[in-house]
Each structure stands twice: as structure tokens, then as C-alpha cells.
Amino acid sequence: MHIQNTHWSTASAVATGGGGLGTTAGGRGDESRAARTAPLRVDAQRNLEHVLRAAREVFGELGYGAPMEDVARRARVGVGTVYRRFPSKDVLVRRIAEEETSRLTDQARTALGQ
């Protein structure tokens, strides 16, 4: 989901690791770029991994209709933590799909090289 001229478009780009305009509604482009390039704190990285794993499990078991609250509960984080990284379910599912595509591509390349 993309909403132009709001902080959601930037948050979406940050959550997916993509580019974007690099500015937020407040015009803080430098801070936004720093957020994309700065490494996550150890606890934030751990929470992100828990959320992604939980989302794969929850959506795999219950389908796309599963609420984000179930993802948060399974990841043992607050729902605000999930929405801070992934402003919508679409953004979260897109991230999972991108990671799976990358993983499968790497496996295929390895298999073709053997």
C-alpha cells in the first residue's frame, strides 16, 4: 500500500529496505536516509526476526486474513512494534515474499552451479 505525501510512503520504503524520496512530511530527508542505512540495535534486529518468523507461521497457518495482532502475539512483541516496522499487512507480506524469492533464487543458482 502506498500513500503519497505522507510518512507512510517513507515508512514503507524503510520497512521494505527500498528507496523512496528520502523525505518525510516534516522534510527531514537526512534523518530518513540515516534510518535506512544505520544498523539496527541488537534488540530491534532480534524483534524484527521474531516478527518475520511469526508472520510466516501465522499467515501459513491462518492465511492472509490473520490479524496483525496474532503476528505480534506469536512474536512476543507489542502490536505497535509490528506496525512501526510494517505500516500495513501488505508491506509485511511483501517483505516476506521478497526474502523467500531471494532465498529460492540463491538456492537455484547454487544448484545450477553444481
Rank of each mutant, 00 (worst) to 15 (best):
H2A: 13
T10K: 01
A11M: 12
A11V: 01
A13T: 09
V14E: 03
V14S: 04
V14N: 03
T16I: 11
T16Q: 13
G17E: 02
G19Q: 11
G20C: 00
G20P: 00
L21A: 15
L21C: 13
A25F: 13
A25N: 10
R28G: 07
R33V: 08
A34L: 10
A35G: 01
P39H: 06
P39F: 04
L40Y: 07
V42F: 10
A44G: 06
Q45N: 08
R46L: 04
L48C: 06
R53L: 07
A55F: 03
R56L: 03
V58N: 02
G60D: 06
E61V: 11
E61H: 06
L62V: 09
G63T: 01
G65E: 07
A66I: 01
E69C: 00
E69P: 00
V71W: 00
A72H: 00
R73D: 03
G80E: 12
Y83W: 10
Y83L: 12
R84A: 14
R85Q: 14
R85I: 04
S88E: 06
R94Q: 12
A97Q: 09
T101K: 10
T101Y: 05
R103T: 14
D106P: 00
D106A: 14
D106R: 12
Q107T: 11
G113Q: 13
G113R: 13
Q114G: 12
Q114E: 13
